[in-house]
Amino acid sequence: MSKFVPGESVRIRDDYPPGHIRTPVYLRGKRGVVTRYFGDFANAEVEAYGRRGPRKGVYGVLFCAGDLWGDYKGPAHDVVEADLYEHWLEKLA
């Protein structure tokens, strides 16, 4: 079930739990916009330990390159998109 909708602004959790994590450090704490819902998938962060857990929604999230990198040298419209599990996304009020 989709918990976020395309166009919605989100913030990526700025947390650093130990273990196998699929949200790269460079995206944590950053703001982005949901582009699409890809579906519910096995949670790699649980499966990596040989366990099964509830499936998690995965969303495309778009980030402005200039927001990720203070020193970004390209044009302001350049973007980075990543596919992130729902438990890494925070709703923005």
């Binding site: 196998h20 096995a42 790699a44 499966e47 990596a48 330990y49 040989g50």
Partner: peptide
């Protein structure tokens, strides 16, 4: 062994 288990071990 899943690809996730393989990646965890690599990391």
């Amino acid at each position: 062994m899943t690809s996730h288990e393989s990646r965890r071990a690599v990391e």
